[in-house]
Write a protein that binds this DNA or RNA. Structure first.
Lengths: 233, 233
DNA sequence: ATTTGTCAATATGTTCTACATAAGGACTAT
DNA sequence: ATAGTCCTTATGTAGAACATATTGACAAAT
């Protein structure tokens, strides 16, 4: 019947609590005043009074900003603006079981995109030591037939690549994406059978990294990931 | 003097508030009980009692989860687990002025990685309509000499690429990265003078997208971004 | 003179009570 | 069946009170 789509047509009213408003206003305030990390904030009571809300509501909003690492507070010293952790909010929410299918699919793809884009940074940053360590991973990997071990070295190899990028944010990011990636792969496996393995192995990628150029590596990676790319079509 | 490093050597004690603990425990609780979106949570008073904290502290923790979109609450109905917005936490924190230099640099690189990795997804998803729209952007772009307009079309072109990926999460993500990207570029420009333009233009990229393959497009994009890649060395 | 102890002041952390408000349920009247 | 009324209830908000850690000033001890 038509009523099913009514709420979509007319648009729901979602009441925003005072904590929501205060959180927003605080962030605007911090931006407008161009606060920098280390700067002191007004006292709770002053803020509460200025916003005309109870200290309780204010603290709920402050608690949110504290979670994101935007502000820190100490007993008598008051509150100061801090350098937030960009990925902190991400981390807390990255649970395959509570994210919707579309988002999971998007994140799966996102990781593929990252892998494919990694080449140029790698060739800029990789040290001889890095390559040695990567080789050790590849050497240990051979002869592993049981699935759990294969997965373990799969993670180790690709994780090492991200570490070699020298980009901590990127490395953490991909680490957070891992559970999603594994989840999607395992779910797909239930439907379409075991994932095939790409023709290009980890050892091949290592060789490309040592002797080839970014172009070759990208092409190798594309081939290595081809079973996954098959899925997104 | 030695005392400067003392706090690093011995490690600071950072007191965690009850709200921190409760937030963590709530998230563990939700995972352990395998709550799915839509499931109802216990009442505030029950949770507070079970955790042996005041309703106030509990609400501070709940307020955090509400901010992330993990839970929703209505007046009498109680609270239910919701599907969080993966990028919500990210969005709130993405301010070039409060992030530290290393993180800004990491995020700058991250966007380069995304651009380079985009090719294969694009070739899977791009429709004729998309290509037409991209062409319109390129056509409008010519003859723009003033900087603000050039920047505008730069954003429009690359933004359209992300939109063509059909990956909403990816598109939103790159949109959030934009301020950081612009900030880093403008800061660098102050030091090292105006950024040079890559030899491959947007029109070239469009042609590659229409008539070439992923390989060609990646190579073109690499060339297009080469001024930026120069910076990260 | 530098360190250590004491004490008052203060801003955040925590609790408790009370009330406001919206939503659900049951029941009735039209 | 629909709409109106009333009660119940879980969240939303407010305010007061106390706990606790930290600061700063000053005195005491080495």
């Amino acid at each position: 019947m038509a009523s099913t789509n009514l709420s979509r047509d007319i648009g729901r009213i979602e009441p925003s609590t005072m904590a929501d408003v205060v959180e927003l206003r605080l962030r605007e305030y911090l931006k407008k005043k161009a606060f920098k990390p280390g700067d002191a904030l007004p006292k709770e009571l002053e803020l509460a009074e200025a916003l005309d809300v109870s200290r309780n509501v204010l603290r709920e909003a402050l608690s949110r900003l504290k979670m994101l690492g935007m502000i820190e507070s100490k007993k008598k010293r008051g509150m100061v603006l801090a350098e937030p952790d960009v990925l902190g909010g991400f981390e807390r929410v990255m649970d395959p079981l509570i994210l919707d299918q579309k988002t999971l699919k998007d994140l799966f793809e996102l990781r593929l995109v990252l892998e494919m884009g990694l080449a140029d940074v790698l060739f800029v940053r990789a040290t001889d030591q890095d390559l040695k360590e990567l080789e050790q991973i590849v050497n240990k990997e051979v002869n592993q037939i049981q699935l759990p071990f294969k997965v373990k070295y799969e993670i180790a190899f690709h994780g090492k690549l991200y570490q070699m990028s020298g980009n901590d944010t990127l490395m953490r990011f991909q680490n957070m994406l891992l559970p999603v990636f594994e989840y999607v792969v395992s779910e797909e496996a239930k439907l379409n059978g075991e994932a095939k393995v790409g023709r290009v192995t980890h050892r091949d990628l290592l060789e490309l990294l040592k002797k080839g150029g970014p172009e070759d590596f990208r092409q190798g990676m594309r081939e290595h990931l081809s079973p996954h790319f098959e899925r997104i079509k």
